[in-house]
Amino acid sequence: MRAALIIAGRDLRSLFRSPLAWLLLAGASFVIAWVFLWFVQGYMASAPQLPAGTRNPGVTALVATPTLLWAALVLVILTPLLAMRLLAEERRSGTLNLLRAAPVPVSAIVAGKFLALLAFLWLTVAITAAMPLSLELGSTLDLGRLGAGVLGLALLAAAFGAISLFISALTRQPLLAAFGSFGAIVVLWIINMAATTPGSASGLAWLAFQPHLNALLQGVVDSADLAYFVILTLLFLGLSVWRLDAERLSG
């Protein structure tokens, strides 16, 4: 664990010293803020026509939830771009040998890389969460539902990160890693579309991100959905460890 934190610290330091990290953070914040303000404006315009009392869907459903969904789409692009450097770049520049020759287990290398990536992604999630939370100043939010949505977004970010890290472990070309991760995430995003056609297996639908994320965005915290994200994350972290270990034997 200590070694993982040392590796993660080094990674974050390098990351924030490059303009890439700041550009991505600024770009992601800008897009999410734009979408958020757009939803706020739409809500303001339609507020007078909304039914009163319990039949009013409320500001959380009409502004916060769609903003979080859009933030998830931003993560689809952001995560591969951040993760591409992680292992592919280290392999290309030869620094992976430094970590391999050090008295550090492969699992600590993978954990360190993942923690650095997760810290950055969760920073983006925190910035995103702050936007709808600011509405609390002038209206009443369904904090439980918002919290469930943010939790979903955070878990989604972890799963995206683990998938991208694994694909970064497969290659020495950062750009290839980015495209590969993007492809893998998109496939897992839309895989339930195929499942909705008659005759296809429902297991395929369970594999997709969307239904699990949607449940959390609706404020339904089901342990099955949480387990889905945790299992997916651990699976790809495990695969990354296996891949790096196998390379020592076959490479």
């Binding site: 080094r10 030869g94 430094l98 020759a101 008295p103």
Partner: peptide, 19 residues
């Protein structure tokens, strides 16, 4: 882990972090 503690290694390409 114990064995590697006693090893210092400079590979063919120096494993440097430019940042």
């Amino acid at each position: 882990q114990q064995a590697k503690r006693s090893i210092g290694y400079l590979p063919e390409t120096p494993p440097l972090y430019p940042d």
